[in-house]
Amino acid sequence: MRAVIFVAVLATIAAGKARAQDAAAGEKVFGMCKACHQIGENAKSAVGPVLNGVIGRKAGSVAGYSYSDANKDSGITWDEATFREYIRDPKAKVPGTKMIYAGLKDEQKTNDLVAFLRQFDADGKKR
């Protein structure tokens, strides 16, 4: 009986820690990205490229943005797993990138950021 209660308590704790992706929370996380990136229908490249439709896009492919050779030549197509690895430590994933961000280590914030980014198609329209 104690084992059943113990397992139930552990399951409750784990469920509280693992919450689903939250696009609204991801928009708040994106606040730190805004220093360099834009997203949405009127987005323009700035210090960093526009992030419209980033999940599913080939790295180094936003027209008019001056990418590092490392990024252009990386061969990456941004799927969720690759983006997560990159955003955790950009310089480790793409040595030579000019992105100067130290990385997002919090898995939940990364989940939320991905949910936020996934809302925007390549034209910046919300899906």
Rank of each mutant, 00 (worst) to 15 (best):
A122F: 06
G53S: 07
L10N: 11
I100D: 14
R19E: 15
F30L: 09
V94L: 03
A70R: 08
R19Y: 13
A3W: 06
A35H: 11
V62M: 01
K93H: 14
V62S: 00
V47A: 08
Y67H: 05
L10V: 14
D89G: 06
A14H: 06
A8G: 12
F6C: 08
A15Q: 14
K17H: 14
A18T: 13
S61V: 02
N52M: 02
G60W: 01
D112H: 01
E107S: 12
E27R: 10
E107Y: 08
N52R: 00
A102Y: 12
K58R: 07
L104Y: 05
A23N: 06
G124L: 00
H37K: 04
K91D: 09
K91I: 00
D22V: 05
A24Q: 14
N42H: 09
K105L: 05
G103R: 03
N42S: 13
T82N: 08
G48D: 07
V9D: 02
I55N: 06
T77C: 05
G31L: 07
L113K: 00
A8T: 09
D79E: 07
R118S: 11
D79V: 04
R127D: 12
S74A: 01
Y65I: 03
A8R: 09
I13S: 12
E41N: 04
F6Q: 08
A11D: 05
K125Y: 10
N111K: 04
K58C: 00
C36Q: 01
E41C: 01
K125H: 11
K98I: 15
R118P: 00
F83I: 01
V7L: 10
Q21P: 13
L117P: 01
A20F: 10
V9L: 10
V114H: 00
N42C: 04
G53T: 05
A43P: 15
T82K: 13
T77S: 09
L117E: 09
C36F: 06
V29H: 02
G31W: 06
K105R: 12
D22P: 01
I100N: 14
G48P: 14
G16I: 15
R2V: 04
R2G: 09
Q119K: 03
R2F: 02
L10A: 12
P90Q: 05
Y65A: 02
A59C: 06
V114P: 00
A63W: 08
K93T: 15
G16D: 14
V4R: 12
G96A: 06
L104D: 06
K105G: 07
R127E: 11
A8M: 12
P49A: 03
A8E: 09
V114I: 02
K28M: 14
A46E: 04
M1A: 09
V9R: 04
C36P: 03
L113N: 05
F116G: 00
S66M: 13
D79G: 07
T82G: 04
G96S: 07
L51N: 01
T97W: 01
F6A: 12
A46S: 07
A122I: 10
G124I: 00
I55S: 03
T97E: 00
M1R: 10
A15D: 10
D89M: 03
S66R: 11
L104Q: 06
G31K: 03
G64Y: 10
A59F: 04
D123F: 08
E85R: 12
D112N: 00
V94S: 02
D79C: 05
M32I: 15
R19G: 11
V47D: 05
V7N: 11
M32P: 02
E27M: 10
A23V: 08
N111L: 01
